[in-house]
Every structure is written in C-alpha cells, then in structure tokens.
Amino acid sequence: MARYDSLLDACGGTPLVGLPRLSPAVPDGAPPVRLWAKLEDRNPTGSIKDRAALFMVRAAEEAGRLRPGDTILEPTSGNTGISLAMVAKLRGYRLVCVMPENVSTERVQLLRMYGAEIIFSPAAGGSNQAVATAKQIAAEHPDWVMLYQYGNEANARAHYETTGPELLHDLPTITHFVAGLGTTGTLMGTGRYLREKVEGIQVVAAEPRYGELVYGLRNIDEGYVPELYDATVLSRRFSVGTRDAVLRTRQLVEVEGIFAGFSTGAILHAALAVAHEAVRDGRRADVAFVVADGGWKYLSTGAYGGTLADAEDALDGQLWA
C-alpha cells in the first residue's frame, strides 16, 4: 500500500494485470502469447486523462500562463474535462468546458459536480464544431487559458514520462502496446518511449468507428487530424465498429471481471487481433493494452445488457467511447 500527500500525487502508478483467461491458447511447445491490462480507471477521477490533465496544468503553471484564479477553457466531452475539473479545483482555477450535446448525462453531472461550467455545441456539427466553438470563445476571452489537449505537447509527454516507463518496468518483455486513438496523446507519448527502449516494439492504435452522423462533414477539407498526431510512431491502426467494441467490453467483464468503458472494448479487439496473429505465426508476445476508464459513466446507454444488436442500435449515431 502507498501513502500520498494529496490526490494529485496519487495520479498514475496504475496496476498491470494479466488476463490468463482471455489470452489465446497456444499449441504445446509454442512460445506464450499473453495479454496484460493497464488499469487506468484506477486514477483519481477514474480515467487515463488524469495524467494528461495534470501535466498540461503543470506545464502552463511553469510557463507562467496560469495564475491562481484564472479560467481554463477546453473543448472536451468527457474524461479530459472531468480530470481538468478535479485538477482545477485542487489548484484554484475555474474551468469552462465546450462539449457536443450528445454526451451522456453522467458526464454532464460529473463535470458539474467537480465544479466545471459547460457550454454545449450542436451535435450536428460534431466534434469539429466543438473545437471550432472553443477556439472562437477563446478569441473572445483572451485572458482565458485554453490548454488544447489535441496540440499540447504536455499531453503526450505525460505518457512519455509516466505511462511508458511504468509499462516497461512492469513488463520488460513487452512486444506490443495497444491503446485508443483520441487526442493521440497516449499513443504518441507511450509509443515514443517504448520505441526508444524496446527493439521491435509494435505500437497499435484502435479508433472507434461511429455511426454516420459523426462523419457528417460537408466537405473533405473540413476534416481534422490532431496536431499531436505523428503516424511514424504507430505500427498499425485499426478502426473498430460498435458491435465489436461492445462485444469485447462485455467479454472483458464476463471472462476477466474487468468492468470497462466501450473504448476499452475497441482497444481489446485490436489487442486480440495482434495476439492471435502471434499465435498463428508461432511468435512469443506480451501484449499490453490500456483500460482507459471504467464502465460506470456508460451504464445509461443500456449497452451492457440485452442482445448485441440492441446494444449496437442503442449506440448508433452516438459517441460511445
């Protein structure tokens, strides 16, 4: 057990647990293929985003951009907002979040509980609209500080300095790292660190594939790639549909007792794909993947019960991860 001076000091240092039941069986005499889950739901507010939030706020403080009493503005519909709200509360800042209207009520309740103020952007414009809205609001309030997680190097650095070293320490034989692709901070930071230290490491991205509404741009040129993204850090990138993500999320709790959010199901789907390829090729593999958050915030979707088809319908057109 460990003791910390404050909640902020208890960020990171999450457990890495083996998944003996979900790891694929290998033929007699073949090298082992093992899956390992990094339990990021064991962070102060329950998601991997605590790491990024803490690093981004610290970096802004060190650069003199943030002073006590300042207002932080961030486009975020979820975990980053909750993490920033907690950090802002403990360090003495006000937080305003801009988020698309089609997020779960749990998220809104959690953000308000932690003391954040919320400005909704229309679902129709999707996430791009929320980023655009936040940028406009920032221009109108030059004294507000936008940390802008999509382009903030401290987001990726949090994982370069903490997630990566923790993984290598706990699993020196790691062969694959699998995580979700959102702002890309987790994969860029952890991926760069592991590439420097582990020869031949495979860095694998899983991104959610949503219903059509989410891709409803008017023009290809309205597309968006986070500034942090550098494709050379990745080895492979999978797009995982709702059905596969839901199936894997349920399998994880049924078989290994880990209750996670749907992005983790998408990540597990990609992790299983690379694990099965290793079995087929008769190669040893230690596949570490990220459990980005717990399932609590998604219970109201109803997608943990009923048939898979019902769950898929329930999440269609929604942002589920």
Binding site: S77, G78, S104, Y210, G223, T301, G302
Partner: peptide
C-alpha cells in the same frame, strides 16, 4: 471515411437513449 475529431471527442459517452429526447 473522412478524418474527424470524432475519434477524439468520441471518447465522450453516448447520450443515454432513454434521456435522448430531454437531452
């Protein structure tokens, strides 16, 4: 597919279907 921030923002929760109307 077009590249959207959906990947990122998407890591937001789904609106509860039951509450969708109200939301």
């Amino acid at each position: 597919l077009p590249a959207v921030a959906g990947g990122a923002f998407g890591f937001a929760a789904a609106a509860a279907i039951a509450q969708h109307g109200a939301a």
